[in-house]
Write a protein that binds this DNA or RNA. Sequence first.
DNA 1: GGATTTAAGGATATTTATATCTTTTATATA
DNA 2: TATATAAAAGATATAAATATCCTTAAATCC
Lengths: 143, 143
Amino acid sequence: MFSKSCEYAIKVMAFIAFRQAKSKELIGLDPISEAIDSPKAFTAKILQQLTKAELLKSVRGRTGGFYLDQNREIVIADIVRAIDGSKILDGCLLGFGECQDENPCVLHHQIKKERSSLKNRLNSTDIYTIAKRVSRKKAYFKE
Amino acid sequence: MFSKSCEYAIKVMAFIAFRQAKSKELIGLDPISEAIDSPKAFTAKILQQLTKAELLKSVRGRTGGFYLDQNREIVIADIVRAIDGSKILDGCLLGFGECQDENPCVLHHQIKKERSSLKNRLNSTDIYTIAKRVSRKKAYFKE
DNA sequence: GGATTTAAGGATATTTATATCTTTTATATA
DNA sequence: TATATAAAAGATATAAATATCCTTAAATCC
Ligand code: FES
Ligand code: FES
C-alpha cells in the first residue's frame, strides 16, 4: 500500500515523537535508523524529505540532529502526503486520475466507504497518540 | 495501493465477465486491451498470469481467446492475490512480515478495523456484481 | 583557526515493476 | 497439408523505486 520510503517515514516520525516525550535532546540519524531497523543512507534521504516538507526540524553540526516542533500536530496522512503524494489517498484505485462519483471505475462503488474511513483514520491519527502506545509497549518499531 | 498489473487484471476480469453476460463468444487480447485502455503486450502477460492462476480459461489458435468458467465465483481478492500476492491483504502495512496482534507495528491498532473491512469487501465482491454495474452504466473501464 | 561531527546535496548503483518484441505452439479452416 | 490466427513463452528494453557512496556545508570543540 505505502512505498517503502513512506513506511520508514512513518516509523521515523513516530520514533522521534516517542523519544521527545522522554527527552528534548536532538536525535541523530544513527539512533533513528537503528531503532526503526532501516538502511542508514536511505533513511538519511527520507529525513531530508521530511525536513524539506517541514514535518521535521533539523540542526547541522556537532550536536546536531532532528526534532519536532511540539506546537504542531502531525497526523499520519501528513506524512503519507509528503512522501507518497496525495494520489494514494485521493486518487482512483484503478488508475483513473481522480477518484470521484462521475465516471467511477469498476471498483469505485464497492470500496468507496471503506476507503473513506481508512482515509479519515489516517487524517485523525497523530504521531503523539502513536508515541504513547509505544511507551505502553502496545506498539513496536521493528519486529 | 495495487500494482499497475493488478489494476489491469481487475479490469480484465470485470470486462470479460461483462462481455460474457451478453455473449458466450471467446474474447481476444485486442478487444480486451482496447476496452480497458491498457498496453497490449503487457496485458497479454497479465492474461497469461490469470490463466496460469486458473482465474481465466484460454483457447489458442484461430478462433481462440479468453473466457470465464461460469460455474466459479471469482472475487476481487482472488485477483489481487493472484497478481500481487497475499502480502497486500494480509501483510503488515509497515513491512513486518505478517500483520498480527502480537508484536504490532505502530500503525496496527489504528488501522486494524478499517483494513479488515476493506479486506472483507474485496473478499465478498465478485466480478459478476461489477459486470452488472457496468451494464447499468454505473461503472466504467476507462476514463 | 583547525579538527571533528552531523545533516544536506549530488552522483551513482542495484533492484523491481512496467512494457515491448520475437519466436513457438495450438487450433481452425481453406 | 498448407495457411492463417491467436495465445504461450522467452528475451529484452525502459522506467521507477530502493539503496549506497562521496562531497559540501554548518555547527561545536579544542
Ligand atoms: S474512481 Fe476508481 S476508486 Fe473511485
Ligand atoms: S502489524 Fe503492522 S499493520 Fe498489523
